[in-house]
């Protein structure tokens, strides 16, 4: 009996050793970063070019022209506001404010094939100044944070992930703010969940949920969603917000960092 046990124990040990060996060999020999770049450059880009040949270019151009018109008016408003902020900073002798941030544009080169991890891979890595926990946005709002950084690529963990993050947020309620902690995403309701701090039962439904100035990594005022409803669970108030981002169309993103 003892001999059989010893034999099985030996087999088990050998089996575990083989698994570890395999994992190490795969991890060392195959760098996902290179695989992603390879598929992007040699398969996806040519395929996309062929696809573009057959797409309705005119409609696309018309849509883009409309967007440009909108951008022009936004640009004027932005210039006025930037100037005002600059003057106010000079008056108050401030070096920087929490809503100041720098942007780096990136392209999504890979999506999570299995889609269980809620991750995308972008073509900006250490070489362009990306670092872990950096905020990632689209033109509509925050989509996630950088999880890991490689030399030329980075993995972005999306806010829709189950194993989500907690970070400070706030609801813009006129001149005041309602502070809270982002607590994850409810896939069945398609809503973000936010635990509210010091909630005085204000009317916040329909108000914007944005990043807070207390965040260490993201600048304040980056849109996350719109508050849909408030729920009370064991005397704790939770706000549920509709995501501002369309997760079906993530192609170009910005990495943002506080200045």
């Amino acid at each position: 009996m003892k001999r059989i046990f010893t034999r099985y124990k030996k087999k088990l040990l050998v089996f575990i050793a083989i698994i570890i060996f395999f994992c190490v060999v795969i991890k060392i020999s195959v760098k996902k970063e290179y695989l992603d770049m390879f598929t992007y450059q040699y398969i996806k880009v040519p395929l996309e070019n062929i696809k573009n040949l057959f797409s309705k270019e005119d409609q696309k151009i018309e849509k883009l022209l409309q967007e440009i018109n909108q951008l022009q008016s936004l640009e004027t408003t932005n210039a006025v506001l930037t100037n005002e902020i600059k003057q106010l900073k000079q008056l108050l002798e401030l070096e920087s404010i929490s809503s100041n941030y720098s942007k780096t544009i990136a392209t999504v080169i890979e999506r999570d094939v299995e889609q269980w991890g809620n991750e995308v891979i972008i073509n900006v890595g250490e070489n362009k100044g990306a670092f872990p926990n950096m905020g990632v946005i689209t033109e509509l709002g925050l989509i996630g944070f950088i999880k890991t950084v490689n030399k030329e690529t980075s993995v972005v963990k999306l806010l829709t992930s189950v194993t989500s993050f907690s970070f400070p947020v706030m609801i813009l309620n006129g001149d005041s703010y309602v502070y809270g902690i982002f607590s994850g995403y409810d896939v069945e309701k398609n809503l973000y969940k936010v635990q509210l701090l010091e909630y005085q039962e204000e009317e916040v439904i329909g108000k914007k949920l944005v990043t807070s100035s207390y965040s260490s990594y993201t600048p304040s005022g980056v849109e996350i969603g719109t508050v849909e409803k408030i729920e009370v669970v064991n005397t704790v108030f939770y706000a549920y917000a509709t995501p501002s981002v369309n997760y079906r169309q993530i192609q170009y993103v910005y990495l943002i960092s506080k200045e």
Partner: peptide, 9 residues
């Protein structure tokens, strides 16, 4: 996968 429909939500 880049050309097929996807939706993280």
């Amino acid at each position: 996968s880049f050309f097929l429909p996807y939706d993280y939500t």
